[in-house]
Design a protein around this nucleic acid. Structure first.
Length: 290
DNA sequence: CGGACAACCTGGTTGC
DNA sequence: TGCAACCAGGTTGTCC
């Protein structure tokens, strides 16, 4: 999405905006937002995690997070309206940038020199998985001594930015790691495989123009096609593409989690309690102190 | 620290 | 066909 916006948005001036669901504006309040955004020129588009960051010529930032169901649509002059538009920006060439978001979890933010004292949510994000700095060592450190399920750790935006439920499951499958494996207990070699799997899964999805599992649309309103390439997500009950074992669906950290019980086995915690059932190992692990 | 769960929201699907 | 229940690509906060 950001790559598409980057080709078309720089140079455009926001001539006005309309917010049809007030809480779509995360900061400042929606009235202040509408007044403050008018007349600003967009100079560049960046991304941090799931936030699209539109740099303004005067030095501020317009940030957009699509939430679960949001689509950021760039519509030409006269294009029919979209069904769940919560925010729209009128641009100087007659086109319109719309946040179309049925569930209203999408958020937009405007940061200017007036915003001191406010901490934008993207500042606390962890490392970018597509940056050179995303190494096995860095990922090892972020998992260090953590007993949370590795799936939960992958979804923690403060550790690694931008991995959502689909790509977490796909990455763990790629690295053959059980989603419930305590993050800190994953062997270095496996963390290395996970790092590679994350990068691979994300790049592959980007090349496929996104995963339209349900509502994702690109800036032109077109569906992506990465959903056709998913290995485990949404494929519970179907054979694993690698070993044909039936893919299972469980709940981890409150999120639907898909994996192959044969390819992704829960492993013992490295140093101790070599004997016992999976249940006992987990119990022993949670009794351990730092 | 970490697990469980509720909130925020609405639309689409499933089950009876 | 109708309707209730359930599920959903995310994030944050509370309680224990």
């Amino acid at each position: 999405m950001v790559r598409d916006l980057r080709e078309r948005l720089p140079g455009r001036i926001i001539t006005g905006s309309e917010i049809s669901w007030d809480r779509t504006v995360g900061y400042p309040d929606s009235r202040t937002f509408v007044t403050a955004i008018r007349g600003h020129k967009i100079t560049a588009i960046e991304r941090r995690g799931k936030f699209a960051l539109l740099a303004l010529e005067v030095g501020g930032t317009l940030a957009i997070h699509r939430g679960m169901t949001g689509s950021l649509l760039l519509r030409p002059n006269g294009h029919p309206d979209d069904r769940f538009v919560r925010a729209r920006f009128y641009l100087d060439d007659g086109s319109e940038l719309r946040l179309d978001d049925s569930r209203k979890f999408g958020r937009i933010y405007l940061i200017t020199e007036e915003s001191n004292g406010y901490n934008p949510p993207w500042l606390k994000l962890g490392i970018e998985p597509l940056a050179d700095a995303f190494t096995t060592t860095v990922l090892m450190e972020s998992f260090h001594a953590r007993r949370v399920a590795i799936k939960t750790a992958l979804l923690n935006q403060r550790l690694v930015a931008g991995i959502g439920n689909i790509y977490a499951d796909e990455s763990l499958f790629g690295a053959r790691i059980h989603p419930l494996q305590p993050a800190g207990s994953v062997a270095a070699r496996k963390v290395g495989m996970l790092r590679d799997a994350i990068v691979h899964v994300l790049n592959r999805a980007i090349l496929a123009r996104g995963t339209t599992f349900s509502t994702y649309k690109d800036v032109d309103g077109q569906a992506g096609h990465n959903q056709e390439r998913l290995q485990v997500f949404g494929r519970q009950g179907q054979p694993c593409p690698r070993c044909s074992t039936t893919i299972k669906k469980i709940v981890v950290g409150g999120r639907g989690t898909h994996f192959c019980p044969n390819c992704q086995k829960l492993r013992k915690v490295v140093d101790k309690t070599p004997i016992g059932t999976a249940k006992q190992r987990i119990a022993a692990d949670s009794d351990m102190k730092e």
